[in-house]
């Protein structure tokens, strides 16, 4: 296993869209081992996406089981070709990124999602996720699509007024 170099802003490669994984082989599993070792080496990293280490395939890892205050979660997850098929609700939350050192900001994410993906052996996975774990997956899938959380940061002031307007319409849009 190896700790891989993490791409950081302003590396243009972080904007690259990653390709789906087609071969579920030993090379994939070896890469996932390296990606996980890299995540564990990152300061307080809960998740990581393959393009953050310059590997432009649709692979992410999240583990929301170690938060200070326990949150609903599915433990350590390797998600290959993850796809969100349903979004619901939205809420702001603070995010940071291994690829954007020394900066955190508020990002609005869906509060509940339905997710389909493959495991490293190509078996189908399916999850309903909420809150922090749903945020984690949305953050990491953004990496696969060449987006960083800084592309989505809102000020608390802006968020306040947005919510005020949304509430006029009754139920928040999903």
């Amino acid at each position: 296993m190896a700790i891989l170099d993490i791409l950081t802003l302003p590396d243009a490669a972080l904007k690259q869209v990653s390709e789906p994984v087609t071969e579920f082989d030993q090379a994939l599993r070896a890469f996932i081992d390296d990606l996980e070792e890299t995540r564990r080496n990152g300061p307080a990293a809960v998740g990581i996406a393959a393009p953050q280490v310059g590997h432009f395939r649709r692979i992410v890892i999240v583990d929301c089981s170690t938060t200070r205050k326990p949150v609903p979660n599915h433990g350590y997850l390797v998600l290959v070709n993850p796809e969100i098929t349903h979004w619901e609700g939205y809420e702001p939350g603070r995010e940071g990124c291994l690829s954007v050192p020394d900066y955190t900001g508020n990002v609005i994410r869906a509060t509940r999602i339905h997710l389909v993906a493959k495991d490293p052996d190509g078996n189908a996975l399916e999850f309903d996720m909420e809150g922090y774990e749903a945020r984690a997956v949305q953050h990491e899938i953004d990496h696969l699509d060449g987006l960083l959380f800084v592309d989505r940061v809102v000020s608390r002031r802006t968020d306040l007024f947005k919510r005020k307007v949304y509430q006029k319409g009754g139920k928040p849009a999903s």
Binding site: P43, V71, G93
Partner: peptide
């Protein structure tokens, strides 16, 4: 509310 900053 507690702020649990997500780092990923």
């Amino acid at each position: 509310t507690a702020i649990e900053t997500y780092i990923g």
